[in-house]
């Protein structure tokens, strides 16, 4: 016990926290790209074209049906064959964003289609263009519906990003395994790694809840809260 708190933690924590920082970076970056990919794919699928929606549907299906770790491996080992050399970190970002983006595209699609068509009619009837209706009327309401689900995906991503350690990204888990191979103190090191993941995830959940509350306008906080939770339920796509 003494050894764990007063020797191992002071000695190894800094190196682990360095890894945790990479975990945070890769998760945040991937989330930003995933949101962009998800939104773009949702729009593409709702665009009503003939080809684009099908292409996107195939992408979403494939990415949801292959394990994330396999996706990361395929990207990491395929890109160099194709003449693209990507540092492990960015291969990780690419893999994670494509994966979460596929899920988010469904979240956005559900959120956008859950907005009553009367909202669109109302915008058009005062002379707005379709684009203006989307940007000023549909999207702000859809985003509010999607935010809790997006937050949930971010917290999952924070943990799932540990898989990038298998493609040699120096994240928290990888720094842990490096320490273990040097010290042979598996139990203690994994314990520290677990604690750091736990702290990061709980802080992230609190942050997500705060953002959610901040975004939920007064009109939804009181009476309409039930309707809102129903709509959020509709927007939630089982992972």
């Amino acid at each position: 016990m003494y050894d764990f708190f007063f020797v191992l933690i002071p000695r190894h924590m800094p190196f682990l926290l360095e890894g945790a920082l990479v975990t945070l970076e890769i998760s945040l970056l991937s989330m930003v790209f995933a949101v962009l990919i998800g939104l773009a794919c949702a729009l593409g699928r709702l665009s009503g074209g003939r080809v684009l929606p099908r292409v996107i549907a195939v992408y979403v299906e494939i990415w949801r049906d292959v394990p994330l770790i396999v996706q990361l491996m395929v990207i990491f080992f395929t890109l160099p064959q194709a003449g693209i050399s990507l540092p492990a970190f960015w291969a990780g970002v690419l893999g994670l964003s494509l994966n979460v983006g596929a899920y988010l595209s469904e979240v956005f699609r559900a959120a956008i289609t859950s907005i009553d068509s009367g909202q669109r009619d109302a915008g058009l009837s005062i002379g707005m263009s379709r684009l203006t209706v989307f940007i000023r009327v549909i999207l702000p309401q859809a985003l509010r519906i999607a935010v809790p689900t997006i937050g949930g995906y971010f917290i999952s991503l924070l943990k799932d990003s540990s898989l990038v350690s298998f493609i040699s990204v120096s994240d928290l888990l990888r720094h842990g395994t490096i320490l273990i191979s040097n010290t042979y103190r598996s139990m203690e090191i994994y314990f520290m790694v677990a604690i750091i993941y736990f702290v990061m995830s709980s802080v992230a959940s609190i942050a997500v809840r705060m953002v959610e509350q901040h975004l939920t306008p007064t009109y939804l906080r009181a009476g309409a809260a039930k309707a809102e939770s129903r709509r959020a339920e509709a927007a939630r796509v089982p992972a």
Partner: peptide, 20 residues
């Protein structure tokens, strides 16, 4: 068409106020 619509707005059965 947009300019025409703006000059003849519509009031709907279900109000369709911008909820946000």
């Amino acid at each position: 068409l947009r300019e025409a619509r703006a000059r003849m707005p519509m009031v709907f059965q279900h109000f369709n106020l911008f909820a946000h």
